[in-house]
Computed example of a mutant assay.
Amino acid sequence: MTHTYDALWTWLRTGAWIEGATRLLLAVGIVVAAAIVARLVVRLLRRLRDRSRIGRPLIYIVEKLAGYALVIIGVFIGLSTLGINLTSLAVFAGAVGVGVGLGLQGVVREFVSGLVAIFDPFVNVGDFIELENGIRGEVTEVGPRATRIKTNDGLNVILPNSKLIETQVVNWTLKDGTRRIHVPFSVAYGVDKVRVRDVVLDAARAVAFTLPDTDSRKTQVWLTGFGDSSLNFELVVWPTVDAVRRPSAMHAAYTWAIEDALRGAAIEIPFPQLDLRVRSLFGREEDAGLRALGLQRGEPHVPATPAPGHPSPNDAADALIADAEEAARLKKAAEGA
């Protein structure tokens, strides 16, 4: 015990502790400085990514790798400053690695999956995806453990990175491409199919986010089947990429436009009911039979046209148009900056 006290006293008296404390403070300072620099670099690259419309996935990869690399380099330099021989840690690191691999294999798995997701060309930050459980949203961040997906309802879904690369994912906006959507609707038996087609096509093309027809992408109306009391149709249409990012609102907007068009053309939309049809009443048919019963055929409904400067009653379409205008404004501001 006396020998230990003598050695400690000698160490304090010679001032060796000052050099050790200085190295420790310097090492801590290097690690802290590396972390600060990494954070600043990440913020700078994030601003560049937000303003850029091209190469955003590549910028995101550089952002993540730069953040990790700067912190790791700072830690190694800090250890070297303390006089620790990093090569002597190889055996120790191997032993510790086995324990970490067994105890933290889930964490390591998610971290590696995150690196794979960052370099994966099929799912990038900014893409609108749909998971197997039906959740749809925009990929906003790929972290070391999980990926954050923001839905159109403002919900943040935290998805383990391994799920992103191991399960089926539908990418609605891969390579900024649009997609064809199908909007089903029904009309009563006996209507003119060609008239239904023309009315619905005109309504769909009048929607602001419908893309113009090309040789490979055309707005069409298909007769898909025969229901119990209806002819079943589908509107097949190609919307803009901005509209694709909000599929529920897009579907609602087209449904509203179809109902307005059919009602305005006095085309009957069937619903479950039991109809008793009398084809002749005392030798009178159709309008003459209605007049004999004291009834008259109703006038066709014409949808109200919104006044100039006022929004239309189609809220879903207005929301999509407003989003597209805001995106165009931000893009113009970024290009100007």
Rank of each mutant, 00 (worst) to 15 (best):
M1A: 14
T4H: 12
A7D: 14
T14F: 07
T14G: 09
A16Y: 08
E19H: 12
E19I: 13
E19R: 14
G20K: 13
L24H: 02
L25M: 04
A33S: 13
A34C: 09
V37K: 01
L40P: 02
V41T: 12
V42E: 10
L44E: 06
R49I: 05
P57E: 00
I59K: 10
V62T: 09
V62N: 04
E63R: 14
K64P: 02
A69M: 10
I73R: 05
I73G: 00
G74S: 06
V75N: 06
F76D: 01
S80F: 07
T81L: 03
G83N: 06
N85V: 08
N85F: 01
L86R: 05
L89R: 05
F92I: 15
V98Y: 09
G99L: 15
G101E: 10
Q105D: 15
V107Q: 11
V108G: 11
R109P: 04
G114M: 05
G114A: 08
L115D: 09
A117C: 11
D120V: 07
P121S: 07
V125R: 04
G126A: 04
D127F: 02
F128W: 03
L131F: 13
G134Y: 06
R136L: 00
T140V: 15
T140N: 08
A146F: 11
R148Q: 09
D153T: 13
G154D: 02
G154M: 06
E166N: 13
V169Q: 11
V170W: 08
V170M: 11
N171P: 07
N171K: 01
T173P: 09
D176H: 11
D176W: 03
T178C: 03
R179T: 13
H182Q: 12
A188P: 10
Y189P: 07
V191F: 04
V194Y: 01
V199Y: 05
V199D: 00
A203K: 00
A204S: 03
A206R: 12
V207Q: 03
A208V: 01
T210Q: 01
L211T: 10
T214S: 15
T224V: 15
T224W: 00
T224G: 06
G225I: 01
G227P: 00
S229L: 14
S230G: 04
L231W: 11
L231F: 08
L231S: 11
L235Y: 00
V244G: 05
R245Y: 03
H251N: 10
H251Q: 13
T255C: 12
W256G: 04
A257N: 02
A257P: 02
L262Q: 06
R263F: 12
R263A: 14
A265K: 05
A266D: 15
P270A: 08
F271H: 14
D275N: 06
V278P: 01
L281W: 10
R284Y: 01
L290I: 04
A292K: 08
L293D: 06
P300F: 07
A304I: 10
A304G: 08
H310W: 08
P311G: 07
S312C: 05
N314F: 04
A319P: 02
I321Q: 12
A322I: 00
A327M: 13
A327I: 04
R329V: 01
A334W: 10
